[in-house]
Design a protein around this nucleic acid. Structure first.
Lengths: 205, 205, 205, 205
DNA sequence: TATGAATGAGATTTCATTCAT
DNA sequence: CATGAATGAAATCTCATTCAT
């Protein structure tokens, strides 16, 4: 069942679009830019996509749909919650900082106000699902007597906030000269902080 | 001590510009929008600012310069580190989610790629200083035997990440229907998570 | 009968306007430019002149009215026509190439099509009167048996053409690096050519 | 040998631009004017030319490059200098007054101050070459014993001045009601004046 | 007399989108 | 499937002119 030798035009366009949106944001990217990057005419893009917005949405969808399912095991079984959480943070930090992904939160955050459909879509597909996954992990930990948490909803945001920070750092501040980060290392440290807290633990000392 | 009878037009324009850029981002805001919000003509704006970009940059600068100095006491003295950290998180969460401020990270993150100077300025003046402040707080706690922390630099990012998450949530997702957050409450929960961690503490149980 | 110690604002404005129109042409000069050159506000100009066009016209009028009467004696009497013609050419070449004058033909020629009133005014006041004067001189010479001329109207244009050439050279080509001309010398040579022609004269050899 | 079925849009646009710049000058012509004359939208012009200025410059260049080479025979041989000079004057007067050419000196003279590159280009390609050609003609005449001339450089300007006068008259003053000229006739008269001078010639009387 | 502030009417330029070939 | 040519709608910016003070 070989994939077609000539990969679908759609895929090519989506890839080129991702690069361009990554570099210039949604409003800053012209259809011309995408077409030129492909050596095609603008009109060719419209053979595959109804509009610039449709192209953008489809690209984000595709990206997201390949990302989230791998972030945590479908069934937690007997796996310790700290391991699952650490795995989630590490996986998401790696994904969201790799080139071609990091831009998604950036564009959504930056241009969500102008494109509410886009923001809604992203909120429902990514943020809600991501937070829901974290919530399941925390509940799993509480059930197993590993975690204690007064406000699960907020705690989820603390978890995701650190990951978001990594994505933004990589994509917004590194390009302008900020000290580079190592996503895996940052993920481990974030997991440590979230799991252990900063306070001295007498039970471990 | 009444404000001057003729408050500088510049200030009026900067305020209106802030609202508009907040609502629509840089590219999405038209000079017409700002002018209409003031009941002025577009041309009036050009009497005070050379260009749209100049107006934007001046507004961001001004905003930033008034924000950071109040985030923590200049000298920590004997104050317990957890209190200082909790205070910092609460203050920043309040500031960054209040209308008229929340947009700063959003616009910087969203359009930083198109305005590198702005992003650099923001990184140096806000992010670096903010992270430096958190670092001082954590070191203060370690010295006092209150905190333990393997990777201070990363921990700082976990702290700030939660605050950033609040700002983005308030500004990007609430407007499209996400469940509203209460910044003070979220700040407390974030502080709890960061301080205590999620793991069950045998020393307290 | 001393002139007023504070020369009329009108005169100041006219002088500044001349400089500016000279440097930038009519369309290229903004009221702001003139005002700034005087250290005044734009509004101040409108206290003296109804409009930009009115200001321009008045300036040209004034310039012209002081120029033409001196170009030739009012009554030719017994003066030899060649002397009068040589005097006219020399005078006009000097005037039209001095800074602050040369620009008049330039602006009229360049922007006459957009401002027909201006062009008409200039044609009637300057060109027609100038050509009329040359015609009178030539007729004077014919009457005195000094000149012979098959087509007086065209000959007048040959006379004026040389003067115009000097003005254009000085104002259009010298500023971009063309070899400078000496108006007096050019006027003498033009008069020589016009009077004697290029052909060898057996009656003089 | 039919012209290509799809004559280059560029050429069409250049032709229409010439007409419009001719009628209104550079500053006075709006892109809209040119587009309307072609039955196109403004945007269509930008498909072919980067900017208004680029369009203007390209048009002038093209025009100039097609004009000068035909003004005089490459090798004068035994041809009498008066004939060559008369031919040059007649040719140039015809060219510079025909619709579509007359505007060149007008626009250059009028807006040279705002476009120094253009003026320089025109000076080098047209004025200098034209004057050089006249100079060669006069020297040819002197060698053949037909001409006598004390200041050749200046005499050349007298020759060209008359031609310039014709172009300006046709384009600046005729449209506002001045008495029309017949270029061929004016050229003959100018040649007569330049060759014979105004003074009575005893050797012919 | 003078001006700071304002503006209406435009000018150039851009870009997502369409369509005949 | 592909495109060259085209465009309508808009956005930024300019400037002669006005007017309350």
């Amino acid at each position: 069942m070989p994939r077609p030798a000539v990969p679908s035009r759609r895929a090519d366009i989506l890839a080129a679009a991702r690069d361009q949106f990554n570099a210039r944001g949604f409003a800053g990217t012209r259809m011309e830019d995408i077409a030129q990057a492909l050596g095609l005419s603008k009109a060719a893009l419209y053979l595959q996509f109804r509009s610039k917005e449709a192209l953008f949405e489809e690209m984000v969808s595709e990206l997201i749909e390949t990302m989230l399912p791998q972030a945590a095991p479908a069934d937690f079984g007997d796996i310790p919650a700290p391991d699952i959480l650490r795995g989630f943070i590490t996986f998401m930090a790696a994904r969201l900082t790799e080139p071609g992904m990091a831009f998604v939160p950036r564009v959504i955050i930056g241009e969500g106000a102008m494109f509410p459909d886009l923001a809604r879509f992203y909120h429902e597909q990514v943020i809600s699902k991501g937070l829901g996954l974290v919530e399941r992990i925390i509940r799993h930990g509480i059930e197993r007597g590993e975690f204690v948490c007064a406000d699960i909803t907020q705690a989820c945001r603390s978890v995701v906030g650190g990951v978001l920070m990594a994505a933004i750092w990589k994509n917004t501040f590194e390009p302008i000269g900020a000290e580079p980060i190592e996503p895996a290392q940052m993920a481990q440290a974030h997991a440590d902080t979230i799991l252990n807290g900063l306070l001295v633990r007498k039970d471990r000392a």
